[in-house]
Design a protein around this nucleic acid. Structure first.
Lengths: 236, 236
DNA sequence: TTATCAATCTCGCAA
DNA sequence: TTGCGAGGTTGATAA
C-alpha cells in the first residue's frame, strides 16, 4: 500500500469521461495496482479510481519551456493506470508531492457480517405464524422459471400464499412479487395464490401499489423475530 | 485528512453488525469526521466505514493486568465513531500504530462528468429518425402523473410512441415503460400509444419481457449518435 | 464464467 | 427534507 498526497489533476476515460481540476488529494495505490483518489470529504466513494486488474505506469511529462525539469504547466510526473481487461484509463498528472510512503499490510482476514435479508428470510420461514395463526410453510426458495419465491406458504384456509421478503420494501419488490403471482396463478395445483409483502419497513409508494394489487403488506420486527429464534438454527 | 496505519480490530453496529478481526489496515479520517478503513486489496469500497455527519471520540482501553499501559489483549486506544443522526457506530480498537500523519487538503473543486444517460436522451431527441424514417419528436420529458416519459414521438403513420431511454436496458426499465403506456393509453388524444425501449445494451430477460408486452426494443450506438451530433447543442 | 440480486449502497436531482 | 433513479455502481451467490 502506497499513500501519496499531492497536488494533482486527474482524468478518467472509459464508460464515461471525467476530469478533476488541479487540487491537493490523497492517492492510494493498493498492492494489486488499483488506485483511489480521495478528497477530504464526501463519503467512502473516491472522487476517481481504477479497479483491479490494472497496471500503473509512471511517465515523464511533456517538457516545459523553462528547462527546470518540470513539464508543461508544472507537471512533474504522469501516472497512467490502465485496466488490463477493458480500455478504461486513469491519468494522474502530478504537480507537487507532499507526502509519499509505502506500507506492508498483509492479507486481510475479511469482514464478518450479520443481519442481512437472508437471515430475515430464515427467521420468517421458522416462524410463518407471524403472518397468521394456522399458517404453514410449503418451502423456502420455492423455484419458478423466473427465480425462486422467498417463501411459499398455506394459510389457515389452505390457500397458497407467496411471500416476498425484503429488508426495506420498495416498489421493485412489489413488481417482483406481482410477476411471481402471475406465474404461480397459472398452476392449477396452486391457484388461487395470494401475495404477502413482508419487510422491516415498507415505503408508502410500495404499500399503495401492493394494496392496489391485492397484496397484503406486513412489517416485521427483526429483533422480535430474533428474540424467539432458536440459536442452534442460525445462519452464523 | 488524517492517515493512520495500524494493527486494529473494527466493529460496526447499525443497519447490520459487522466485525473485522485484528490485522494491519489504513484508517482515513476526513475533515468532516468520517472514517474509512481500507485493506490492501478489493476495490474502492472500504472494509468498514462511517459516513458523515459523525463524531470521533478517542477513549482508553479497559486496563490490562500487566500494568504496561496497554489494555486487555494489547489494545492501546479505542476510537468510537458515532453517527450524529442515527445509532450507527463504528468502534476501532487500536493495537499498534505504524504510521500517523495529518494533511491539509483544502476544498476539492469537484468532478466534471460526461457520457451519462441524460446525454443519450438528448442525442436521441435530436435524432428520432434513429427509430425510423418519418418519425418526429412531440417532446422530451413528456410529463405524466407518475413521472416524465423520456421521449414522446409520432411515427411515420402519426401513431404516438413512448420511448424509454436507458444506458443499460434491464427489467425495471420495461416495467417503468409499461406503467407509462398503461397511463398514456387512457388519454383519447394519444391512444393508441406504442412503446419503444431504447438502450445501449438490452439484457435478454428485459428483451423477452418487452417483446411479450408488444414493446419494441432498439439498441442504440452512443458513439454513432455522438458522431453526427451538433457540438453546439451538447450538454457540456 | 455469467447472470442475478442486495447494499451500512452513494450520489444527484426534483418535488 | 424526502423520494426516486442512476451508477465507471460494488459485492456475493447461484446457475
Amino acid at each position: 500500500m502506497r499513500i501519496v498526497i499531492a497536488r494533482c489533476q486527474v482524468d478518467y476515460a472509459g464508460r464515461l469521461t471525467a476530469h478533476l481540476p488541479l487540487a491537493t488529494r490523497v492517492i492510494m495505490v493498493k498492492a494489486d495496482g488499483s488506485v483511489l483518489v480521495h478528497s477530504d470529504g464526501g463519503s467512502y466513494k473516491p472522487l476517481n479510481w481504477m479497479s483491479p486488474p490494472c497496471t500503473l505506469t509512471v511517465g515523464d511529462p511533456e517538457p516545459g519551456p523553462d528547462g527546470d525539469g518540470a513539464g508543461t504547466d508544472g507537471v512533474t510526473a504522469v501516472w497512467t493506470v490502465q485496466n488490463d481487461k477493458t480500455d478504461d484509463r486513469l491519468v494522474i498528472s502530478l504537480h507537487e508531492i507532499l507526502h509519499d510512503s509505502a506500507h506492508d499490510l498483509g492479507v486481510d482476514p475479511g469482514l464478518v457480517k450479520d443481519g442481512v435479508e437472508a437471515h430475515l428470510q430464515v427467521l420468517l420461514a421458522e416462524q410463518v405464524e407471524t403472518f397468521g395463526a394456522g399458517w404453514r410453510l410449503v418451502r423456502r426458495e420455492y423455484p419458478t422459471p423466473i427465480g425462486p419465491v422467498d417463501l411459499l406458504c398455506r394459510d389457515d384456509q389452505g390457500v397458497a400464499v407467496a411471500v416476498e421478503v425484503k429488508r426495506r420494501g420498495e416498489i421493485d419488490g412489489v413488481e417482483q412479487l406481482t410477476r411471481y403471482l402471475d406465474l404461480l396463478n397459472r398452476d392449477p395445483l396452486l391457484a388461487p395464490v395470494r401475495g404477502v409483502f413482508a419487510a422491516q419497513e415498507i415505503k408508502p409508494q410500495a404499500r399503495t401499489l401492493a394494496v392496489d394489487r391485492g397484496i397484503t403488506c406486513v412489517t416485521v420486527d427483526y429483533d422480535a423475530l430474533r428474540g424467539v429464534d432458536d440459536p442452534t438454527s442460525r445462519l452464523f
